[in-house]
Write a protein that binds this DNA or RNA. Structure first.
Lengths: 213, 213
DNA sequence: TAGATTGTTAATCGATTAACAATC
DNA sequence: TAGATTGTTAATCGATTAACAATC
């Protein structure tokens, strides 16, 4: 049945932590070291690593490069994938900057906006197309992942167009609930809701923090 | 022991959905209606609502206004709370725009940056202070929640300053793992990791989507 | 070897689900 | 009343934790 949502999220985090350790010159890591950084337990790290099919060594722990390879085999697709970004406002530009200069396996290959001043420009290495051309570009490039960074009132319309053009997964920054057909995965990144959670747990304080994990 | 992390997140979502329904003129809602919108089950909605101490009516379901009040009593603090925003780049401005014109119970009351062109300006209704003044302003206003929207290399330093100034909860947008002492709640909003998850599930397709929930 | 790690299995914990009685 | 809802309880499911044997 494949790894769960949580496992995928943790592997993604391990990859980031491992890459940072490798850049610092480390070549191997123990489960408890990774657990400390990931705010988890050593046993959980071992279980997650096992799910990738990689085995560490009792005396030397996990080889960072080999572990990165195995995590990549789980998380990454066979070939490089493009992402479509809808909306090049402040948020859209921040997202483009975020992805600029990262590993090319998963990168934003087309951005879309309605503002004539932005259309046909290249921002952070990504070409900005007219929103009207979205279906043609997405279909032509075979893009399967979309990011919604348009205003709330345009979010559902934009999502529907992306899905019609063949997109199978959406990351939604707009503070609205998107309707999507079966087979299309939607993940919401809702700043206001996240801030509410943070404020709640900040208020509750230490005693409750432990129970959150 | 108080509601769990997940419950808090769902209540936050219900509040948004209920507010939208109320704006559409609805006055009551049934558990299964709310469940459909929240992509959950009716039983789960009932359990969550029960945890707020509010009871619906068998024939009329939940009164939207009363339910909103009860959710507010769980999620909101006694008095209005301020938020400190560190970093007024593209992402910071997007966050400010996001919060502008929302309910004032939880709002960004102070923003900080190092760029002289931004300091002392008012952006989306929020005053931008010099980063150097952060401890004084945060302490003076009794701010307990911070948002990290600075570049990755400045994130830990900024977080430490916020925590020293009294902040007890952080929402971190920087793609680095922050160290924080016990009693300080940190939530990461990591765009790259979210995109990886979306790409993974987009690739896996329908069959797996159900198991994700 | 001794020791700290690894993978593996059994026990625990918690949340979700399903079934039921109570209510308007 | 009949019916669809509500709160409540028991059963199920899954993930996490703890304990152990295997490995270098």
């Amino acid at each position: 049945m494949g790894p769960s949502d949580k496992t995928i999220g943790r592997l993604s985090l391990y990859r980031r932590l491992l890459a940072a350790m490798r850049d610092d010159g480390a070549s191997s890591v123990y489960s408890h070291q990774l657990a400390t950084l990931a705010r988890g337990t050593a046993a959980q790290v071992r279980r997650d690593v096992m799910s990738t099919g990689y085995s560490g060594s009792p005396t030397r722990g996990y080889d960072i490069n080999q572990l990165l390879d195995h995590i990549g085999e789980v998380l990454d697709g066979r070939e490089p994938e493009g992402i479509a970004l809808a909306g090049v406002g402040n948020l859209g530009r921040a997202i483009l900057a975020y992805f600029a200069g990262r590993a090319p396996n998963l990168s934003i290959t087309a951005a879309f906006d309605t503002d004539p001043d932005k259309i046909n420009r290249v921002i952070h290495g990504c070409r900005v197309y007219e929103m009207h051309d979205l279906p043609a570009v997405v279909e032509r490039e075979g893009i399967k992942v979309g990011i919604i960074a348009v205003p709330a009132e345009a979010a559902q319309r934009t999502a529907s167009v992306l899905i019609s053009a063949g997109v199978r997964g959406l990351l939604n920054f707009a503070p609205v609930r998107l309707w999507s057909p079966d087979g299309v995965y939607v993940e919401d990144m809702d700043v206001a809701m996240a801030v509410e959670r943070v404020a709640y747990f900040a208020r509750r304080g230490v005693a409750e923090k432990e129970s959150v994990k």
